[in-house]
Amino acid sequence: MLFAIAWDASSSWSLAVSILPILLKGLWVTLQATVVGFLLAMAFGLVLAGLKSVPLKIVRWPAKLVSEFLRDTPLLVQLFFLYYVLPDYGLLLPAFMTGALALGLQYSAYMSEVYRGGLEAVGSGQREAARALNLTPVRTFTHIVLPQAVPRIIPASGNYLVSIMKDVPVLSVVTVLELFGVARIIGDRTFNYLVPLSMVGALYLILTILAAWAVRTLDQRLPKHGIALR
């Protein structure tokens, strides 16, 4: 798509105006990668959190180790690993999916902690009360624990959603043309990195300020005592 578009590098302003449309296309890719990465992180995180709470040590310990490992190693290296090693085993994914997968794996470790923290914040008194009322374990979880945990889980997840968005530029190294990757190519072509990179910074600032406001608003709207299920 980049090759088709010409830009006007006669002045900084005209350059800025002429590249804005392609930057916005890159931004759209960034948002897509953020959402897909986040959904994967939520799903993997749930699995990890489940495995980490299994009573069997032989399941729990490896899960904890994997979780630590995913959290303590760089996204960039995890991404390269997936990008170069998966094809060796016959798994050829598009660059975008490889990137989203790397984001999902890295953040699954964080998300599993978010789930755990949310569930643990519901005091044992609640579980004891439910048992005293003779509720089944399933009903206790779905109607007592989960509704109280969700208002804690949502804001923390929102913060990680924003973190994922800020990590998407790393995907540019495996040829994903997200916002930063687009800006980098424009810089390489025009030898003017200042304008596109500053614009990327400004766009990120706008997005993160909006996101922070959204998380805060959501946090205030959520009932602190929990969300009742019908």
Binding site: K166, D167, V168, P169, V170, S172, F180, R184, G187, N192, Y193, L194, L197, S198, V200, G201, Y204, L205, T208, I209
Partner: peptide, 26 residues
Amino acid sequence: VEVFRGTSLLVQLFWLYFALPLAGNA
């Protein structure tokens, strides 16, 4: 705090390495 928390590290790194010299030139 807002600027450096609100933007991406990779953007900051490239800005300092590639864009700052151009700003200096100007």
